[in-house]
């Protein structure tokens, strides 16, 4: 029983980490209909920049954090100015490919500036097992993961307030609903895009720091973007709660499958199980768990 609970808990925590990455996807997809493949590399780039600044200048981490946020806003501005502005009204697949190109550019820039060796993020995040659980119930749970879950909760709360209550948030939702109608009531699409890419960059930074603290900042960080994809289709591309719930389902499902099904078929099924789960799910609900119902007309 303890193994089961431990698996579920660690699955939940891994799910939170996936959800952090998926959140960035959802933000951009909602506001501009772009499927941003570069989100994973943005995590890598943000974490690299953060670790690089701390390493080179040895400033305390809050300053490095602020500087990195500034860099991500710069990236957002550049993306809008040099890429998106020229690709308005193109088909989704073209935009998708552009973001893959963007992923290459960010990866190249990050490697050239900061080098491609593994970096360690050490900003005093808690680590080790949660003692209460380990002593009383014999369950191992990493403090870092609990902390990441808390951060994720705060972040989602912050985003929810931002989207529901502030003026910019409402403008964002208006753009998500209908580009042209939003333009006609005087919302500037270009500003909105810069803002939403900045917010996505901020989320990427948080996710990047969490993942970086867990497993070091290296190229494989950008591959977690691929793990976020099944989370997305499970939860629905357009829903923030969907990203969270999808992340949790995938995280738990993956860990349970690895423990209970894995030994039967030779292990390492973590790589594809999430996709199969999402695929099976899609057959019954093509728009995902919380996605808007797809209505098609001729």
């Amino acid at each position: 029983m303890a193994i089961f609970i431990e698996t579920v808990l660690s699955g939940l925590m891994a799910g939170v980490m996936y959800a952090l990455v998926a959140l960035g996807f959802v933000l951009i997809f909602k506001a501009s209909g772009i499927f941003n493949f570069a989100q994973g590399v943005m995590c890598l780039f943000a974490a690299l920049t953060f670790a690089g600044i701390m390493e080179k200048t040895s400033v305390p981490w809050p300053i490095a954090f602020v500087l990195t946020v500034a860099v991500m806003v710069g990236v957002a501005w550049a993306v809008e100015r040099f890429v998106l502005r020229h690709l308005v009204n193109q088909e989704p697949i073209i935009l998708f490919m552009a973001t893959i190109g963007l992923a290459y550019v960010l990866e190249g820039v990050g490697d050239i500036i900061w080098g491609s060796d593994v970096k360690v993020i050490n900003i005093g995040l808690p680590s080790g097992a949660v003692d209460v659980l380990l002593d009383n119930f014999d369950i191992y749970l990493d403090k870092l993961e609990v902390f990441a879950a808390l951060i994720a909760a705060v972040l989602v709360g912050f985003l929810a307030v931002f989207f529901q209550k502030t003026r910019i948030g409402r403008a964002l939702r208006a753009v998500a609903d209908d580009h042209q109608a939003a333009l006609s009531v005087g919302i500037s699409l270009q500003t909105i895009w810069v803002i939403v890419w900045s917010v996505a960059g901020f989320v990427a930074l948080v996710a990047g720091i969490m993942w970086g603290a867990k497993s070091g900042v290296q190229f494989s960080l950008s591959l977690i973007a691929l793990k976020a994809l099944p989370v997305l289709i499970l939860g629905g591309f357009t829903s923030i709660p969907g990203a969270i719930v999808g992340g949790l389902i995938i995280g738990v499902g993956e860990k349970l499958a690895e423990i209970y099904v894995g030994p039967m078929v030779g292990g390492a099924i973590e790589n594809w199980f999430a996709y199969m789960l999402a695929l099976a799910f899609l057959l019954f609900r093509p728009q995902g768990l919380f996605g808007e119902k797809i209505i098609e007309r001729v």
């Binding site: 099944p230 997305l232 790589n271 594809w272 899609l282 093509p286």
Partner: peptide, 29 residues
């Protein structure tokens, strides 16, 4: 087969299932 139910990017992600599953299969069996 899933393409009969799902479209666009959802399908793209679904085909990723094929990618990862097949690579795993040829590694393991």
């Amino acid at each position: 087969l899933p393409s009969l139910r799902i479209k666009g990017f959802y399908l793209a992600v679904a085909t990723l299932a094929a990618q990862f599953f097949l690579v795993w299969l040829f590694n393991k069996v």
